[in-house]
Design a protein around this nucleic acid. Structure first.
Length: 521
RNA sequence: GAUCCCGUAGCUCAGCUGGCAGAGCAUCUGACUUUUAAUCAGAGGGUCCCAGGUUCGAGCCCUGGCGGGAUCACCA
């Protein structure tokens, strides 16, 4: 595959060749790093490392760092540049006479560019203007960048030429991460959040497990699956849409608490809140019910906010959100009545249809009672729930895996936590009556036959497991990406997913011959 | 899938009523041993997203497509 190089690429490729001619390996094997950039700043001690003017020689703080050249200021026989590593930036000072004969003029000045990765060994000092810097005693090229980087310039207050093209940033996330330290920080926070979540769950003795991604039958959520094919077994497989049914089999098997943090896949549209593959945490705890689970969710999310930010109060977009326990608890029908003045409990499907239309919704004949209620909630209530709120007790027809309510006819023991106008989790007292579960599945199959593409399949093996007896169980599903959006103040799910799904680009990054590659039967 | 907005140099962006494609940074050449958006002097760099159309002439107008964003739909 060949590609026409831009002027700047040609210059960099020539530099790479000339480096090799000079005996400098443009792709070194290793470099011993003693400090990150921020460690250097922290380790520098004014008392010890700066001459005190009374003739006493300062102590030398020698460090070794590695990173990418982000800017260059060359002044004849000396130069400054900023080196960026994972922690941040540190200024490097280079002078001709401190490097091997000729290296400064031929290699440093002529063959190194912004974006190249180098190792620097030297001592730390403070420049005349006051910036803590490293005086280079040894410079090694570690990796030559053959493509030019976007050069972002900044002072304390202002930034120039920042990469703003979202497409560029999502497609070339590696570049986005280099030029936007805050993006690195977002993903570090995401990682910390998941670590804290895992710690919270492990600390309570729940067992982290792994269940199949490739499944002969999908279930556990209302969604359309991706399909794939296993060649050796010549079998259609689905990629999981939820972990639920497998995890509850494990509760049958005698685990008292299991959880899984994993990717789910749903064959749906893309939006600010939806990526076809996304991360879910599901937890099932035996002998507990949804009221107990509510308390756990509050505690978990409060714990995460403190672990990440040291406080329970976060700024998310326009809103100041407090995750401090306890959160408001509000039955679904009361929430709807509060916002619309309509009490929907006990209403027939046709009465709901009339109310829905009166409220201005489009209601068609295919929509059941539960669907109409869900629409009214989604339109008039959910967007207005900014502070974390538990919405409880859903209609049974919306929740085929939840246990019927102990006291309210037609409802199930289910809650969702809503925050900043979006759901962050879904939980219920799990249905463990196998005969009731079979009827619910059969209803789903009827819906499927009527054309509901998101209806669940009847999972005989799951029913078999329930028939052996599953203890009363509380179950929870948390949208990890949605939660990460809240915790990092991101307004698009793409900002908390490193490589969000995009349409393929027609460009130079794919080999032409790939189009001729054999496809799987 | 629908609607609206966007697509010009490596990056950020101008481009008038349709009249020779521009700037800053980056790159190249030269000067400069504590600079910091380094500075100074000079130079090169374009499939104006793609394909048609209108026109003497299209970056600009029209049609279709591709890609992205936002909103909606779908969906948690």
């Amino acid at each position: 595959m060949s590609r026409i190089y831009t002027e700047q690429e040609q210059v960099r490729r020539e530099a790479r060749v000339r480096m090799e001619e000079e005996g400098v390996n443009p792709y070194a094997y290793s470099w011993d790093v003693s400090h990150h950039a921020t460690d250097v700043l922290a380790a520098f001690d004014e008392e010890k490392h700066v001459a005190d003017g009374e003739g006493e020689a300062p102590e030398k703080l020698t460090v070794s760092v590695a990173g990418r050249i982000m800017s260059r200021r060359i002044m004849g026989k000396a130069a400054f540049f900023h080196l960026q590593d994972e922690s941040g930036k540190i200024q490097i000072y280079v002078s001709r006479d401190d490097l091997p004969e000729g290296f400064y003029n031929t290699v440093f000045k002529k063959l190194l560019d912004i974006g190249d990765i180098v190792g620097i060994e030297g001592f730390v000092f403070r420049t005349r203007v006051g910036e803590i810097s490293i005086h280079t005693e040894k410079l090694q090229v570690l990796a030559k960048a053959l493509r030019p980087f976007p050069v972002v310039k900044e002072t304390g207050e202002q930034t120039w030429n920042e990469v703003t093209d979202k497409e560029f940033r999502y497609r070339q996330r590696y570049v986005d991460l280099v030029v936007h330290p805050e993006v690195r920080e977002t993903f570090r926070q995401r990682a910390r959040m998941i670590t804290a979540m895992r710690g919270f769950l492990d600390g309570r003795g729940y067992v982290e497990v792994e269940t199949p991604v490739l499944q002969p039958m999908y279930g556990g959520a209302a969604a359309r699956p991706f399909t794939t094919h296993h060649n050796a077994l010549d079998m259609k497989l689905y990629m999981r849409i939820a972990d639920e049914l497998y995890l509850k089999r494990l509760i049958v098997g005698g685990f008292d608490g299991v959880y899984e943090i994993s990717k789910d896949f749903r064959n749906e549209g893309l939006s600010r809140f939806h990526n076809p593959e996304f991360t879910m945490m599901e937890l099932y705890v035996a002998y507990k019910d949804y009221a107990w689970m509510m308390a756990l969710v509050e505690e978990l999310v409060e714990h995460l906010a403190i672990a990440l930010h040291g406080t329970t109060e976060l700024q998310v977009g326009e809103n100041r959100i407090s995750f401090q326990r306890p959160w408001r608890r509000l039955p679904l029908f009361d929430a709807i009545e509060e916002k619309t003045g309509e009490q929907l409990f006990g209403k027939t499907r046709d009465e709901l249809s009339v109310i829905g239309k009166r409220l201005g919704l489009e209601v068609d004949d295919s929509m059941g009672a539960g669907k109409i209620i869900d629409e009214i909630f989604g339109e008039f209530v959910e967007p207005h729930l900014i502070q974390p709120t538990f919405i409880t007790d859903y209609p049974v027809e919306l929740s085929p895996l939840a246990k019927k309510h102990r006291s309210k006819e037609g409802l199930v023991e289910r809650f969702e936590a809503i925050c900043n106008g979006k759901e962050i989790c879904n939980a219920f007292s799990e249905l463990n009556d196998p005969d009731d579960q079979r009827q619910r599945f059969e209803e789903q199959v009827r819906l499927g036959k009527r054309g509901d593409e998101e209806a669940m399949q009847l999972d005989e093996d799951y029913l078999r497991a329930l028939e052996y007896g599953m203890p009363p169980t509380a179950g929870l599903g948390v949208g990890v990406d949605r939660l990460a959006m809240l915790m990092t103040n991101a307004d698009s799910i793409r900002d908390v997913i490193l490589f969000p799904l995009l349409r393929p680009e027609a460009d130079d990054t794919r080999d032409q011959s790939a189009d001729d590659a054999p496809t799987q039967p």
